[in-house]
């Protein structure tokens, strides 16, 4: 298998190429995904290779994109629909919450809806309003939806392939701040990273640090600031369904946990993780679980954006606080 050093854009692009090659039912649709190759160039080259019936520049309508993708999925295609920016995914919630996520259950398994919605998300790129938000919480809250966020090029490819092959609707959020942030070795050809499983980025005994997406990288940076604490960093990879096992086992071992997310604090996934820790590891805890999160405010425009986003120092402070409680 050939291995190349790729950034996340290239890794996702490669996954799309390979999956479209492998399965003629996979189609890509969205705003500017064809001729333009996507505003982040994630779908570059697909139109030339697979033609305009499988790589579709749609009219400007998010509900239209996702609603028609549902019909395609039910019929037997595997649509991979792009929502250009996370802040425009709100318009898809109706179709996802009212239909995509329920079709299997509503029809008692007679129909199902195997589709992927891809969208960049998150801050740190100095963008316009609605272009810097972390919105996964909305979709995690929809029963029947899966929600996936990679934090590296390797995982991005492997998770996207799994998402495309998954029989249920998956919202696949791409941390746009990491699109070109770094490269790593990504094999060509088939491999998958399973949905529903987190992974340990570091092993440790003192504190469990839980994060995903762009914030997983911030956590890695934070580790350099707390060299005297042994931290087990878990990258959840899939936010729904949540990997209880990896969280529980780690917290039972360390007795201390910090959760880091970019989403606003209230009802962010951190809240659910704490509830599950209470249910499954409460008696092992040696300190209250701490959250480092975005605030309960709209993401500020660029001039104040950095104050909103959790950074390595805030994370390191939290680790120290929990470790020395």
């Amino acid at each position: 298998m050939r291995v190349a050093k790729l950034n996340m854009v290239q890794a996702i692009n490669l996954a799309l190429h390979e999956e479209m090659e492998r399965d003629p039912d996979v189609i890509v649709m969205g705003e500017d995904v064809g001729v333009d190759g996507g505003v982040f160039r994630v779908t570059e080259g697909l139109l030339n290779k697979f033609g305009s019936e499988r790589v579709i520049d749609t009219p400007l309508a998010e509900s239209g994109i996702v609603g028609t993708a549902i019909g395609m999925a039910v019929y037997g295609l595997k649509p991979v629909a792009e929502i250009q920016f996370e802040g425009f995914s709100y318009m898809t919630i109706d179709q996802l919450a009212a239909h995509a996520s329920r079709i299997r259950n509503r029809s008692r398994g007679t129909y199902h809806c195997p589709m992927v919605i891809r969208s960049p998300y998150g801050g740190g790129v100095r963008a316009l309003e609605h272009h810097s938000e972390a919105v996964a919480t909305f979709y995690i809250h929809i029963p029947g939806m899966k929600v996936v966020i990679p934090s590296s090029p390797y995982d991005a490819k492997g998770l996207l392939i799994s998402a495309i092959r998954d029989p249920d609707p998956v919202f696949f959020f791409e941390p746009k701040r990491l699109y070109r942030a770094f490269r790593e070795e990504v094999p060509e050809g088939e491999y998958t990273v399973p949905l529903g499983e987190g992974k340990k980025l570091t092993e440790g005994d003192d504190v469990t640090l839980i994060s995903w997406g762009a914030m997983a990288r911030v956590c890695l940076e934070a580790l350099k600031l707390v060299k005297d604490v042994s931290v087990e960093l878990i990258d959840l990879c899939t936010l729904s369904p949540l990997d209880d096992k990896i969280i529980t086992e780690s917290v039972r071992k360390t007795g201390r946990a910090v959760i880091v997310h970019e989403e606003p604090r209230t009802l962010g996934l951190g809240a659910e993780i704490i509830a599950r820790i209470n249910e499954k590891a409460f008696l092992y805890l040696e300190a209250p679980v701490k959250r480092v999160t975005g605030y309960d405010v709209p993401v500020p425009l660029p001039k104040l954006e950095d104050y909103y986003l959790p950074d390595a120092e805030r994370v390191a402070d939290a680790i120290k606080e929990v470790a020395t409680f």
Partner: peptide
């Protein structure tokens, strides 16, 4: 145009 999409493809 809407970014790259020409008017004829919009409607």
């Amino acid at each position: 145009y809407a970014i790259s999409l020409p008017r004829e493809r919009q409607t």
